[in-house]
């Protein structure tokens, strides 16, 4: 387990963070939680933002125009980063918990990093295709 239980009451978040063992799997565990909280917050924001659909075409189009400006594109890519990490590591967690899966957790972690980085880089190229190549490639 990543978390070493202790008996003393815990004062601060930084102290709890220092109690994680620094293995690959512990970082995965920590990142899974951080991305999970981030995605939950994003789900609230997403529902809120799309509620403008009830205000009609003009309001929605104006909002969508804002979302295609560069800062939102960067945010979109960062969101993709959170989603892809959480999804691939989540698959790993489900596999590790099935039968004999725990044997393969380190191999699976390497696969998560490899596939994750590949997909996130691909997303970067797709999101910024106009900026990178001067014209849309898809």
């Amino acid at each position: 387990m990543a978390y070493i239980p202790n008996r003393e009451p815990i004062g601060s978040w930084s102290r709890i963070m220092m109690k994680y063992k620094r293995n690959g799997g512990s970082w995965a565990y920590l990142l899974h939680r951080i991305t999970g909280i981030g995605l939950t917050v994003y789900l609230f924001v997403h529902i809120w933002a799309l509620s403008s659909l009830t205000k009609g075409n003009a309001a929605f189009a104006a909002e969508m125009k804002t979302f295609t400006t560069p800062p939102f594109k960067v945010a979109e890519w960062l969101l993709g980063l959170l989603v892809m990490w959480h999804a691939f590591n989540g698959i790993r967690i489900a596999v590790v918990d099935l039968g004999n899966g725990a044997k393969y957790q380190k191999t699976l972690l390497k696969a998560v990093w490899t596939v994750g980085i590949a997909v996130v880089l691909l997303m970067f190229i797709l999101i910024f295709q106009t900026e990178l190549f001067g014209h849309p490639i898809l």
């Binding site: 789900l43 609230f44 529902i47 809120w48 799309l50 509620s51 659909l53 009830t54």
Partner: peptide, 9 residues
């Protein structure tokens, strides 16, 4: 509350 907003949309 936010599920309500989503369902309403």
């Amino acid at each position: 509350i936010f599920l309500g907003i989503g369902y309403n949309t």
